[in-house]
Design a protein around this nucleic acid. Sequence first.
DNA 1: AAGTGGTCTAGACCACTAT
DNA 2: TAGTGGTCTAGACCACTTT
Lengths: 254, 254
Amino acid sequence: MAVVMKDLEKINRELYEPSYAQLARILRTQIARGHMRPGDRLPSESQLCRQYDISPMTVRRAINILSDEGVVVTSQGKGTFVKSIQFWDATFRLDRLQPLIEDEEKAKVKLLETRIRKADSHVALKLGVKIGQRVIYICRLLLLQEKPFLYHREYLIYDPKRPIVESEIETTSLKGLFEGTGRSLLKSSALNIEVTVLTKEEAAILESNGAAPAFRIEHIFYDFNNHPISWGWLVCPGNLLRFTTSVGFHHEEL
Amino acid sequence: MAVVMKDLEKINRELYEPSYAQLARILRTQIARGHMRPGDRLPSESQLCRQYDISPMTVRRAINILSDEGVVVTSQGKGTFVKSIQFWDATFRLDRLQPLIEDEEKAKVKLLETRIRKADSHVALKLGVKIGQRVIYICRLLLLQEKPFLYHREYLIYDPKRPIVESEIETTSLKGLFEGTGRSLLKSSALNIEVTVLTKEEAAILESNGAAPAFRIEHIFYDFNNHPISWGWLVCPGNLLRFTTSVGFHHEEL
DNA sequence: AAGTGGTCTAGACCACTAT
DNA sequence: TAGTGGTCTAGACCACTTT
């Protein structure tokens, strides 16, 4: 059977881009251009070795990249196949917010309130402390180009032994906030995204309509003993935020 | 300098779990237990080779896994370091919905309406067709345990040359819906998640309160010529759906 | 039996960083 | 100069699937 050598770009070893990345890019482009369609089998690894004159490990690495990206699926003994796109593969990344918030020019954080409170039943449950125990309440507003954008409230465990209090409260930018202040004491975090409508108080602070729909991002941070350190939530009016993503095959335009 | 051999699990080559995965797991566990904290340097690759008696490539593969997971960060010439957790690393996966919807027992799809319409300006813009061109409108309701859960409306390009129409409309489960019907003609999809409040009509169909907050997931599918195939959106009342995720270091409990 | 992907070796050479 | 990660080789052996 004659193999048609179509689109056979060569690997250029002079480039800064390593061979495995080049091969991954070449195959990804072929798929995105429709030369290989979902369900089609890719050339076998040994074929790719010969075609591109690179070693098996390098080919495998390229294939693994595409596999991690969800572009192909491998099956031992059968081959490597182009995956059909799955709606469910979509992931929404919070880091789309990061550039907005880290821009010191446009983003300002206002500390609205900070004080010691006694934990009510709800806070006690979330933080795993006893009702009535002293906790720190922090309330911040993030402004984007002078406009209210995010309203953040947080309860921190009050531990006189660790002076995390001051450094936490001092934070006037959200940048370092969630990286952890005592940096090495944060182990993990659990997050929820929900929708709500703004309360009157929230609407007033965010200069939005009451009962406007909003995102609510809740977070709990844990230390290395898996004990909660803080519980809080961000509220952002729906008209100011959307999450976008895409699934499927993409490549640079010609 | 005496190296303290702490937590030195051995690689077991008899296991089904490959060596690189074992090493990744061992290192991940050490980090999660706090034996190595954010900012700490991992043993160098050559040290790991000697300690675990495996080859450099296998060590590299383990490190690469942790790097892909965002647990460590590598720096040429300096070493490999435990990353501090980043709030922004959080990703929310749509596939949390999949098990719900694919469960044929609990999930039923009701086809509410399907008919040919002429594209108005909005639809024409989204689908890249002329105003007045005929498009297919489909309206579905997904019920979960007999309760309305998702309300789905979609506009499809009407192309008599391709009989995608029948197969699309026949779909009574959402399962195969987004995998594509003519399976090989879907190239990519763009998605948005927004918040809205339910209109009266939506609230009636979803048996929810009017003006209740809701997720709105919009999608556009493209073919291999990068032309839109369909545009549609899902609406789900906020009290029925939340997205959850976590960031940081996790390991199996002891 | 032949072909496929999956793991792994024992090195090599390079680029970068610390000292 | 010595140590670090980054790339790559040219095979080996294995498990699985197809013929």
